[in-house]
Amino acid sequence: MTEHGAAGPAADRRRGAARPQRERVTSVDAVSARTEPPARAGRWAVGEAETLFTRTLMRAHGRLAIMCLVSFAVALVLVAVVMSRLPLLDAIAIGGVPLSWLIHAYGFYPLMIVWAIGYTLASQRLEGRFTQLVEHE
């Protein structure tokens, strides 16, 4: 079996760049022949500066994502604790439905929307700074 289309456009570009690539023809039972990574380190090597750059951006992205996820989890737990541990909320009913049930049914979605927009704006800023840095170089 060939690896045609294996990695989508990335593979297309590779094929386009240096055809024909007979060494990429393989088969299901030739997996053992692939225990070592293909010898293409030269062509695929990434510069040290680029690696450092990417890792810095990745870490920044990761930090932002974790910060947002953790703060969202804290908010979610807080709302869950309030709605499940405050007997007062069971006593107040709106349209016959206890407030605790209404919070459970509707209360979490606004949080998600706020966090989603906040994260997306923050990540846009982050990538904008990164792109500016690249363009300055």
Binding site: R40, V46, E50, E127, F130, T131, V134, E135
Partner: peptide, 16 residues
């Protein structure tokens, strides 16, 4: 061996 290259692609904005 391609891990750095792919991660760079995954995490870099298109403009760059």
């Amino acid at each position: 061996v391609s891990a750095d290259r792919i991660l760079s692609r995954l995490h870099s904005p298109e403009r760059s």
